[in-house]
């Protein structure tokens, strides 16, 4: 069985993931969903239900803003655009992630003996 990412693990990063997509250009709900899926190499699906709730929150926090597209066939699309505040938030989250990633890796895989014991085990 291939490993999956638990919802618990990804929950705190939903907004950062969305901001990362929008940072690369304006997009709308279903397209953002597909982009996230593609970005994960089809390994992770962020549910649209989660996306729409996150859009509302991000818009309220002024990290993104929305506008309607001018499609005439099949209904208008609601596009999202990242704001300056959103870009700032993204950079901040990215720094946090890079820091946490390293520490977590050490905490999950490392052993205290590996570090100081390199002399003893090395011989």
């Amino acid at each position: 069985m291939s490993p999956t990412i638990s919802t618990d693990l990804i929950r705190g990063h939903t907004t950062t993931i969305i901001l990362n997509i929008l940072r690369q250009g304006d997009s709308y709900g279903y397209e953002i969903y597909k982009k996230i899926l593609a970005l994960s190499g089809n390994q992770y699906e962020l549910k649209e239900a989660t996306l729409y709730t996150a859009f509302r929150r991000l818009e309220k926090e002024a990290c993104i803003e929305s506008y309607w597209g001018d499609e005439t066939q099949g209904g208008r699309r609601k596009y999202y655009r990242i704001t300056a505040k959103g870009k700032e938030r993204y950079q901040h989250s990215k720094r946090e992630w890079n820091f946490a990633k390293e520490i977590l890796d050490r905490l999950i895989q490392g052993g205290l003996e590996d570090e100081e014991g390199s002399k003893s085990t090395g011989s």
Binding site: Y28, G29, E48, Y52, G74, G75, R76, R77, K78
Partner: peptide, 12 residues
Amino acid sequence: EQKEELFTNLKE
């Protein structure tokens, strides 16, 4: 607006 947004995306 939420309904319209969901409608378009579902349709696609």
